[in-house]
Nucleic acid binder design. Structure first.
Length: 308
DNA sequence: AAGACGAAAGTGGTTGA
DNA sequence: TCAACAACTTTCGTCTT
């Protein structure tokens, strides 16, 4: 856990858990997501003399988020230019022209696309691991010529969406759409196309992955949050989840759980953060009550409130 | 007055002939 | 390629708090 955060700014609790993969720090006391975009400070090696050999790395790490994997040399960066004058400057311009010419179309495409990718990724506060993954996916897509006939931006969005899904750090199509300015259905289309062509397998996204984020923006307690995950598990056993949109189920579980813990949120509020309508929540909610026999508990809750 | 609930019609995507 | 279909949305009226 990085040093930066030691206490929860919301409740002051020090019981924080760090999910490295998602780059999130979550307060176990109040459920607040404190930091969503963390740099991974861990080292790549553990032992200097392990059997795996020497894992110390030299130079910058390989990265897919630079169009040339961070290994190339840029000729003619602005800072360098100012140091030079006269002939040397001309020389630099010539070299730069050269460099430009030897860039293949693919490289130029990648450079643009990865800039866009970083923009969207930081807008959505996605962790580095997802950014890397999506850059990898995009690179593969370009190499396979899958961008032809599609806008670069939409493929970027599709790659990001796929990477999110693979890392269990789901963002909805709506969020991707808002961040990238690409229509939802377009992202979905390219997402499906790219994953199919590249043979990327994606597990259906798990509603539980949405809980932490939704609960956090609704300011629900940690108990409510973990209870809603239990509800979710029961729902899965009752086969209520297959074929339904995961966000709707997550939202309904959260809604029920909030009711049971006396932290009532309106259907409207829950629906908004989950990106579904109240009707969907109602439908899922009804199913949950039917299948999980929670009616009594809800009624109990109502009675106890009447007494007061 | 606001929220919860339900019915009915509409939308976009999937599937199977 | 088209039609049937399921999930979800939109809209609206009614009931509850």
């Amino acid at each position: 856990m990085p040093e930066l955060v030691k206490k929860c700014p919301e409740c002051g609790g020090i019981n924080l858990s760090w999910n490295k993969e998602r780059g999130e720090i979550i307060c176990k006391d109040c459920g607040l997501v404190i930091e969503e975009k963390m740099v991974d400070f861990t080292q790549e090696w553990r032992e200097f003399d392990s059997e795996d050999g020497d894992r110390r790395r030299a130079g910058a790490p390989m990265t897919y988020t630079q169009y040339d994997h961070g290994l190339g040399t840029e000729v003619g960066q602005k800072a360098d230019l100012f140091k030079l004058g006269g002939r040397d400057r001309n020389k630099f311009f010539r070299l730069r022209k050269w460099q430009y010419r030897i860039s293949t179309a693919i490289e130029r495409n990648l450079k643009l696309a990865l800039a866009e990718l970083k923009r969207v990724s930081s807008y959505l506060k996605l962790p580095k691991s997802v950014e890397e993954e999506s850059a990898r996916i995009y690179t593969l897509a370009v190499q396979k010529g899958l961008v032809r006939g599609r806008s670069m931006e939409s493929v970027v969005a599709g790659a990001l969406y796929a990477a999110c899904r693979r890392h269990d750090v789901p963002r909805t199509l709506d969020e991707l759409s808002e961040a990238s300015g690409i229509e939802k259905k377009e992202i979905g289309r390219t997402y499906r196309f790219v994953t199919r062509e590249l043979g990327i397998t994606i597990l259906p996204s798990n509603p539980a992955d949405y809980i932490a984020r939704f609960a956090s923006s609704l300011k629900l307690s940690a108990e409510t949050q973990s209870n809603s995950i239990e509800i979710l598990e029961q729902a899965q056993k009752a086969e209520l989840t297959s074929g339904r949109g995961p966000t709707g189920i997550a939202a309904a579980a959260l809604y029920v759980s909030a009711l049971l813990h006396g932290e009532k949120r309106t259907q409207r509020e829950v629906a908004d953060v989950a990106g579904v309508t109240e009707v969907t929540i109602r439908n899922r909610y009804k199913e949950l009550l039917d299948e999980l026999k929670l009616e009594k508990e809800i009624k109990k809750k109502k009675k106890s409130r009447k007494k007061r």
